[in-house]
Design a protein around this nucleic acid. Structure first.
Length: 343
DNA sequence: AAAGCGGGGTC
DNA sequence: GACCCAGCTTT
């Protein structure tokens, strides 16, 4: 074994976390964990992984659930297209592959929601295929070891780091090697305050030698964060303890999740202009910061007066039934904080 | 090539 | 407030 692989995998054997998806080569469970952990930390995803494995022990169980049930289990985890693709792929594996997962990189990458990273991860972890994973951790570790400054979020950077990743891969044990380099990036070669003083690569880390650790990996510009102004009219019926919701259908944030009645405005002023009537209940205002947009949200709660002054897709739900409906985290918090009287 | 997609954590 | 996280799909 070459020095890099030996030092890396020695570090891994002494420092790796004991995680449930590392105790199995079952491709269903590994796939589940990989989809959940895309853009998600282990601490946040672990409970969801356990819920899914418990509720759907096999891909066939997941395939036979409804999309709404799957979204409800995913509720609060974000990036909901992952859940929709998860369900779609489960149905495909169940209906077209007899419930058996593809066993190669090329077969896996055809699945919805499975891209280059996830296909490399599953094929190497479960089937010992020699595919090098390339995720945020690998980018960071390699960019520092080689002090390589091509921005990672460019086509050229992707290509160059892919070559580097392949060159380092331990062909004898791609599964352990891939786990090792990602775990090393997550626990030791961290984005902030990496533990260079106790690093096994002190002698060969070019960025450490050059004093450029904090500059790696290089990335190009951050995109502008859009501001959106949401006015929610939260219709309630105290007598029957109901709140009115509608399903979101636009290809937008929270696709296929349930929503209050919503009016969107292009500015704070436009939104305020729309609030003309005297309100019995003080509006609740929140700022919801997401990765690519900031939502300035105003909630106005209104007791229903007949006839129902809204569109007919709005339907009443009891507070109790909300447990089984996929609702954004923002809405969940509002309900808990402001609609206690319904329960 | 660029945009869109969540929620939570760290510093 | 900026940046990050076991990325992928759509345009």
């Amino acid at each position: 074994m070459v020095r890099f692989q030996r030092l890396l995998q020695n570090w891994y054997s002494e420092n790796k976390r004991d995680l449930p998806w590392r105790r199995t080569k079952n491709p269903y469970k590994v796939w589940l964990s990989e989809i959940i952990l895309q853009q998600t930390r282990v601490a946040q995803g672990l409970a969801y992984y356990n819920k899914f494995v418990y509720t759907y022990p096999t891909v066939s169980d997941l395939a036979q659930a409804s999309e709404q049930e799957v979204l409800n289990l995913w509720k609060g985890l974000g990036y909901y297209s992952r859940a929709r693709n998860l369900h779609k792929t489960a149905k495909e594996v169940f209906n077209e592959h007899g419930g058996v997962f593809p066993e190669t990189y090329l077969g896996l990458i055809k699945l919805s929601g499975v891209g280059p990273y996830t296909a490399a991860a599953i094929s190497s972890f479960c089937f010992d295929e020699a595919q090098a994973v390339l995720d945020g951790n690998v980018f960071r570790v390699l960019s520092r070891i080689h002090d390589h400054q091509t921005p990672i979020n460019t086509t050229l950077g992707m290509k160059e780091f892919s070559v580097l990743a392949k060159a380092h891969l331990n062909l004898q044990d791609p599964a352990s090697y891939n786990q090792a380099i990602m775990e090393f990036g997550a626990l030791h070669c961290k984005p902030k305050n990496p533990r260079c003083e106790t690093c096994p690569f002190t002698l060969e880390c070019s960025a450490l030698i050059n004093g450029t650790i904090d500059l790696r990996p290089q990335k190009i510009k951050k995109l502008k964060i859009k501001k959106r102004f949401f006015l929610y009219i939260v219709y309630t019926d105290r007598a029957s303890k109901m709140v009115y919701l509608k399903k979101r259908t636009a290809k937008d944030i929270w696709h296929h999740l349930f929503d209050f009645y919503l009016e969107e405005y292009s500015s704070k002023e436009e939104l305020e202009k729309a609030i003309t009537e005297d309100l019995e209940i003080e509006p609740v205002q929140k700022t919801h910061k997401l990765t690519h947009q900031t939502l300035h949200v105003t909630f106005i709660q209104k007791e229903i007066k007949k006839p129902l002054p809204t569109d007919e897709t709005l339907k009443p739900y009891s507070l109790k039934s909300l447990k089984n409906l996929p609702i954004p985290t923002l809405h969940q918090k509002y309900i808990e904080e402001e609609l206690g009287f319904l329960g």
